[in-house]
């Protein structure tokens, strides 16, 4: 038997998997497509969940939102596992460099004590809020439909856990790795009136049953406001108040928030343009959660940035919603 290969006969008999071909035609597919589309099991389930006997184990009815095709919720970043970790690995490399630089140059020492205290009181406790974000996105991964959105949700969940760790590392960078700042920050999270609204909001989101409502309450309402407060307004404030060095330590969160917003915008837009039913449902959720967010964030935003800050953040939320066709 000869092992010489006749390359002329080495023609593929098909370009991609059949379900990908049915969606996109008979042509070579991208890795995002093959890794994403129709991966969720949809038919012929075996047992009723012991914890949710009225639904199938994979069940689109775990949200009130209805989609003809859940795979319309494509991630504009086209993240599947590989590009996701490689992208974040690059971002963390920069962050790691920033933290090293901060530590090596002793930049923590040059931060005056009132600013340090402000950071510990009003920034580091975000590490706890990020845990709620982690759980809310994990909830969507577990109960959502279609890998297009569920994979993006777990990427968001892991990101937010990463954020929680970065906020903690800021504390360690400020307290010389003793962990004292984290203990103090936790006390603020637990009892400082500035935080109680946010903490109550976070705890409330963790009791939401509908996974898309959890996405709205967390990734749309709260995150838009928090992102504007912390990564735009507070960023400017630090620049003007001798806190530039700290911006190095916030860079990851800031860049990540931008990246994530492209995805959440797209999810929101596709869902509300799908049907009036969806947009009404989403609007109803938003109106509930924005009232809660208003109450929750007022004391924190005032303490962090002054009285006008929250109104500015709400204007950003408004704009974001209008852009996807939601007029509140």
């Amino acid at each position: 038997m000869t092992i010489e290969i006749k390359t002329s006969t080495m023609k593929p008999i098909r370009n991609t998997y059949a379900h990908i071909e049915r969606r996109f035609g008979d042509k070579p597919a991208t890795r995002y497509q093959e890794a994403t589309y129709d991966v969720h099991s949809t038919h012929n389930f075996h047992y009723k969940p012991l914890w949710d006997q009225d639904r199938e184990i994979n069940d689109p009815a775990r949200t009130a939102v209805v989609m003809g095709d859940w795979y319309d919720l494509k991630d504009p970043r086209q993240f599947y596992y590989g590009p996701y970790v490689q992208n974040r690995s690059k971002m963390q490399e920069t962050a790691e460099g920033n933290f090293k630089f901060f530590e090596k140059r002793g930049l923590g020492d040059s931060i005056d004590s009132s600013l340090r205290e402000k950071i510990i009181q009003l920034v580091i406790p975000m590490r706890h809020a990020e845990v709620a974000a982690n759980l809310n996105n994990m909830y969507g991964t577990a109960h959502g439909t279609g890998t297009a959105v569920t994979q993006a949700l777990i990427f968001e969940a892991m990101d937010r856990f990463g954020n929680a760790q970065y906020f903690s590392k800021i504390g360690l960078a400020l307290d010389g790795n003793t962990g004292d700042s984290l203990a103090t920050a936790k006390e603020h999270w637990m009892s400082n009136p500035a935080w109680q609204g946010v903490r109550a909001y976070c705890e409330k989101t963790l009791t939401i049953k509908d996974w898309f409502e959890a996405f709205i309450a967390q990734d749309i309402v709260l995150d838009t406001l928090i992102n504007d407060l912390y990564y735009r307004q507070f960023d400017e404030w630090l620049t003007q108040n001798n806190g530039r060095d700290l911006l190095l330590l916030m860079e990851f969160m800031q860049d990540r928030a931008k990246d994530s917003q492209r995805w959440s915008d797209s999810v929101l837009k596709v869902v509300v343009t799908e049907s009036e039913h969806n947009s009404n449902q989403v609007l109803a959720w938003i109106s509930t959660w924005r009232i809660r967010a208003q109450e929750a964030l007022e004391p924190l935003a005032s303490a962090l940035l002054g009285d006008k800050a929250l109104a500015d953040a709400f204007a950003v939320l408004e704009k974001r919603l209008t852009k996807v066709g939601l007029n509140c």
Binding site: R127, V131, Q165, S168, M190, R199, E203, K204
Partner: peptide, 17 residues
């Protein structure tokens, strides 16, 4: 410090929910 310490005791909702 970076993980275990992130959790907290609930005051506003029943943790069981």
């Amino acid at each position: 410090l970076l993980t275990r310490d992130l959790d907290w005791e609930f005051s506003y909702e029943d943790r069981k929910e």
